[in-house]
Design a binder for these strands. Sequence first.
DNA 1: TATTTCGGTTTAATAATGAAACCAAATTTA
DNA 2: TAAATTTGGTTTCATTATTAAACCGAAATA
Lengths: 149, 149
Amino acid sequence: MVARRSLKGDYCPSARSLDAIGDWWSLLIVRDAFDGLRRFSDFQKSLGIAKNILTERLRTLVDRGILETVPVGETKARVEYQLTAMGRDLFPVMVALRQFGERHLFQPGEEHSLLVEKQTGLPVKLDIRTQDGRPIEADETVLIKVPED
Amino acid sequence: MVARRSLKGDYCPSARSLDAIGDWWSLLIVRDAFDGLRRFSDFQKSLGIAKNILTERLRTLVDRGILETVPVGETKARVEYQLTAMGRDLFPVMVALRQFGERHLFQPGEEHSLLVEKQTGLPVKLDIRTQDGRPIEADETVLIKVPED
DNA sequence: TATTTCGGTTTAATAATGAAACCAAATTTA
DNA sequence: TAAATTTGGTTTCATTATTAAACCGAAATA
């Protein structure tokens, strides 16, 4: 593989996000974290990931500020992993992936999980709007270059 | 690697999405496709991806219905790749990744691209709402299991 | 106290990726 | 129109990433 190319220097924010969490396991770990998992063994059981890889991924996610460790009990040998504020900001990414999956990757009537509002039980949707709140379609948008603030 | 675990059977729509487009290159190709790239060589130049890997990824994305080939010219030896309707439904995923990147992965004042509405030049935002349109926070949501439709 | 669980690390095998060389068909240039 | 270049790959080989399995000490549980 000769050092996978980093996109840290890319001016495209999507590319930088993918550089940070675009590998095979990281977003699945984040998904599990949103589902409330916190322990090494829980992630390992949930994902079936090799333990050394999980170790490395958790370390990277912590390094990048997406997860943080919380000592459990008196000792420092046991830790839990939880989302940081930055990590919680990945929520829209998760919802977007979920929405795409629901729409395109399930047979009609096939069992799947659903994200709903706690209080009302209403399904959660995601939509794209202009800053002033008008819903907008993809083809009404365009990328511009921002020179600097 | 002994066959990377497939998540096709997972009941979580996010996991299925990641199974479909969660590898290192696919979403970057999709991003480029949203940016208007269509030719093999354009993707190759843009991403710096090895050609054999690009070949394989394009084929997979076509197989999965995210891209489709369009013959260019009279012959069938040259093709272009364009997003299908399903592929275009990945737009919210791209916007979510972009929003996360903008928020967390750039220094203040650092140059980056920006997604705006064509007509007004207003920045595009993404938000999460209930089905009936009320904006909602991540911690007000919960996953439920849908047995069947 | 003995046993099991937890959170890893190490090792060896296998799979995925990358770089480079190569190629035929199409296109462009001279 | 002949030659050179571009396009869209394929093949081969070296390197890196991932896996499974064995192992480990500390902590928790029985």
